[in-house]
Design a protein around this nucleic acid. Structure first.
Length: 493
DNA sequence: TGAAATGTTGGGGCG
DNA sequence: ACGCCCCAACATTTC
């Protein structure tokens, strides 16, 4: 009998530390000896061709994944084997090649992944392979958090306070000092990283490379930096886009390069002697929002494409392609919006406060369907995440669970003056405005012509005139919303 | 995790 | 001294 092999199928858990499935895999390997031969762990990653196109990673995300797989390959002593195709077929091919006794993974919670995995589990068990799935991605399992009437929460605060915080504490991260006996034999169907085609043909990611260090070490460094620094002023600083006031952990969390439990308890432990610390609590509640969006996607699997609140189905979007294009390229003529959209395009990231501002502007001032914004973010964000992205866009649009009411329309000028007082952030991404004084940095169209001239700004030439009048488009949004409400009422009677 | 419109209060200028 | 108006500053309501 050939050597027993335990497959560790890495998905959105590209790490060795605090990885429950891997922990179990190693544990099983230690205790599985067949004919005197000890089992080994075969680490694999599969690029799933069967994923719906909606869920195929976007451009920025693919770049990140490429780097992360490189990093994981190194930390598994080059044992990581890559595949592309249909996961079930690939696993079956591996079972034909090796004496596979177990397959392990950490659960993913997107609806299509749940369907895929439960099918694979059924099939593999019929072939006498043990399958074990673990929770390595969430603090609380979505199916376990329900209201008293056994229905899911739809509002964040009770979900988080009652549903999560009063429940059993999340699992404390495991430290594993077992050395891992990786399986080194190469499968015939494996492919090389380059063959996954994750890197674009054009080298557009130069500036991204300088800012980010994907992989498990990069994640640990980032967390340590956050705890030592920004976490101490988090509640206020997180809103200031010119300051690094946030954790910047989102892409790492999306790909599981650090476990959510590690982050949760790192904060708790760092503030153990100050358990009421408002900065710490605010940050933990942000992790709660991440949790909530996964929870919503689990219980309401249609949220990536359908309005959570079906009353929005009668809403008539303008969907002007030129407006959408100007927004995507950061050419709306509204400085804070353009700065945000340029940050996104250039760096694969956008500050959270600015995400809300640009989202509100697209959906309300331009009346473009939130799904168009969701798609653009999906393609451009390094941290693109199905759950967070769709839940957040629906939140901004007003169509989501516990969404901001439709009439809550951000005024990008006021938001800019509040959170980017001196215009530092705007000037960084809109250098053509860098000479403008703070008074006009968020509304150059109101600057007297002599000031514009002195600042080398020629509206309509080196910086666009505003795409819409903020007051008029705000009013238009409110009227459109009122009309859709009326139409929904009619449709019902 | 809004902003604008509207309401209220209180101090100061002024007849 | 007093009432009146104005309007900032703040609070509340409405969208």
């Amino acid at each position: 009998m050939s050597k027993p092999v335990i497959i560790m199928w890495f998905r959105h858990d590209l790490r060795l530390k605090d990885n429950p499935a891997l922990f179990h895999a190693v544990d099983i390997a230690q205790n599985t000896i067949v004919d005197g031969v000890k089992a080994k762990v075969l680490p694999i990653y599969i690029q799933d061709d069967t994923a719906p196109s909606q869920a195929q990673p976007g451009g920025a995300s693919k770049w990140w994944l490429h780097q992360s797989l490189t990093s994981l390959s190194t930390s598994t002593e080059s044992s990581l084997q890559l595949f592309s195709g249909e996961p079930l077929a690939i696993l079956q091919a591996l079972m034909a090649e090796h004496n596979v006794t177990h397959v392990l993974w950490n659960r993913c919670y997107e609806p299509w992944q749940i369907a895929r995995d439960s099918n694979i589990k059924t099939q593999l068990k019929q072939h006498d392979v043990e399958v074990l799935s673990c929770n390595g991605h969430l603090l609380w399992e979505p199916m376990q958090v329900l209201k008293k009437d056994n229905t899911p929460y739809k509002v964040f605060t009770p979900y988080y306070r009652k549903g999560c915080l009063t429940r059993t504490e999340p699992r404390y991260p495991q430290s594993m000092d077992l050395s891992i006996d990786w399986c080194t034999s190469n499968s015939a169907t494996r492919i090389e990283l380059a063959d996954l085609g994750l890197l674009p043909d054009i080298h557009w990611y130069g500036s991204i490379e300088k800012m980010w260090q994907p992989g498990e070490q990069g994640a640990a460094d980032r967390l340590a930096t956050f705890i030592a620094g920004a976490s101490r002023q988090y509640r206020e600083d997180r809103n200031i886009p010119a300051v690094t006031g946030t954790s910047l952990l989102s892409p790492y969390l999306h790909f599981g390069e650090i476990s959510i439990n590690t982050v949760w308890y790192a904060l708790k432990d760092a503030y153990a002697n100050d358990p009421e610390n408002e900065h710490c609590d605010t940050y933990l509640s942000e992790l709660g929002w991440r949790e909530f969006s996964h929870y919503l996607l689990f219980h309401f699997p249609h949220i990536p494409t359908e309005n959570f609140n079906s009353k929005f189905d009668t809403f008539i979007w303008r969907n002007d392609p030129q407006d959408l294009h100007a927004w995507q390229r950061g050419q709306t003529g509204i400085p804070i919006v353009d700065a945000g959209m340029r940050e996104l395009y250039q760096t694969g990231y956008m500050h959270n406060r600015v995400r809300m501002i640009v989202g509100s502007f697209l959906v309300k001032n331009l009346l473009v369907d939130w799904r168009a914004g969701e798609r653009w973010f999906w393609d451009c964000l390094l941290d693109a995440d199905m759950a967070a992205n769709s839940a957040s866009w629906q939140w901004v649009a007003g169509s989501g669970a516990d969404a901001s009411p439709y009439f809550r329309i951000f005024n990008p000028i006021l938001q800019g003056e509040k959170f980017d007082k001196e215009g530092e952030y705007v000037k960084h991404y809109c250098p053509e405005l860098r000479k403008l004084p703070p008074k006009f940095i968020h509304k150059p169209w109101e600057a007297p012509s002599n000031i514009l001239q002195a600042c080398d700004v020629v509206l309509g030439h080196n910086y666009p005139k505003p795409l819409v009048d903020l007051k008029v488009s705000r009013q238009r949004a409110l009227e459109t919303f009122a009309k859709s409400k009326e139409d929904a009422l009619h449709a019902n009677t």
